[in-house]
Simulated assay, not measured.
Amino acid sequence: CRIRPVSRAEAAQGGAIVVEKIDEYSVTVETPRGPREFQFDKVFSAEASQEDLFHDTSRKCVSHRLIQLAIDGYNVCVFAYGQTGSGKTFTMVGDKEQKNPGIIPRAFNAMFDIMRKNNSKFTYMLELYNDRLQDLFASQAGERNRKGVVFAQGAETKEASSAQELYALFQQACANRHISATSEQTPSTSL
């Protein structure tokens, strides 16, 4: 769980933080009925940096293990969950100038570190949105077999020889993402 700080616009309108980190694993949320407590595997305060977030997972070998598994051909997913404006895209992608890169560009760098050691390469990029798999470099949707396994038939192959080239492909693919606003009751997902 990552607590997002109040934005400038929210602060100007008198907005306040309603989520408080209790410890490494718990938060309280102010609700109309009083505070509610929630538990997570890890809690990051509003002051946590992008680097803190990535390095915490790296120290536990989660990100590098997931990247190695993806390179080895296993299905890997990082799931970002929350309402529109909750900070999913910033956590995953970072800012536009990449002064504060998120998990994805940092994972690209780690991926190329691993690939340099193993002589592997990246091939395609897919998005799962509302239970539909889409190749972000083409317009064809993936199909499911009888066991529910997703196959992206006709997925377009793109090669990148550096993390920077991969990030440029990522930005190209993001232009084809499906993005929609959500109500407070409906969660949304992001890359």
Rank of each mutant, 00 (worst) to 15 (best):
F90H: 12
D52I: 05
I103Q: 00
A173Y: 06
V62Q: 09
Q140P: 01
V18R: 08
V78A: 10
K60H: 13
A9C: 08
Y74E: 05
F38M: 07
V6M: 02
R59C: 08
T189R: 02
A163I: 04
Q39V: 11
I114R: 03
E97A: 15
E47C: 05
Y25F: 13
Q172I: 14
E10D: 09
E20Y: 03
I67K: 00
A110N: 10
V76K: 06
E51L: 13
R106L: 14
E165N: 03
F137V: 02
E159Y: 14
E24M: 08
Q164K: 15
Q68C: 03
Y81P: 01
S180G: 13
C61F: 14
Q164C: 07
G87I: 05
Q13A: 13
Q98W: 09
M125K: 01
L169V: 04
V29H: 02
Y25E: 13
L69V: 11
D23L: 08
S120V: 02
F151S: 15
E159H: 13
I104A: 11
A70E: 05
A80I: 00
V27T: 08
K99D: 08
H64Q: 13
S26M: 12
A107I: 02
R4Q: 09
V149A: 12
E184G: 06
V6G: 00
S86T: 04
I103D: 00
K158Y: 10
S162P: 06
E51A: 14
L128S: 09
C77W: 01
L136K: 06
C61A: 15
D56K: 05
Y25M: 10
D113E: 15
T123G: 06
N176V: 01
V19F: 05
S63L: 14
G87E: 02
E127D: 11
A155C: 11
V29P: 02
I103M: 02
K121F: 14
Q164R: 13
A163N: 04
I3H: 07
E156L: 14
T123H: 07
S63E: 06
R33K: 15
E184V: 05
T189G: 00
L128W: 10
G102Y: 08
V29N: 06
I3E: 00
A175R: 15
T31P: 06
Q172P: 04
F54V: 14
G73L: 01
D52F: 07
T91E: 02
F122W: 12
T91A: 06
D131M: 01
R4H: 06
E143A: 12
R8S: 14
V19R: 03
N145S: 10
A11M: 08
H64D: 13
V76M: 07
Y124K: 14
E24H: 10
R144P: 10
I17E: 15
R132Y: 01
E51F: 06
H64R: 15
V150I: 15
Q98V: 07
S139L: 12
S162I: 07
V78R: 00
D135Q: 04
S63N: 13
V29R: 09
S7M: 09
Q68H: 10
G73Y: 07
G34L: 05
F122H: 00
E97T: 11
Q172N: 11
I22N: 08
Q171P: 03
R177G: 01
E24I: 03
G154W: 05
K60Q: 15
R132C: 06
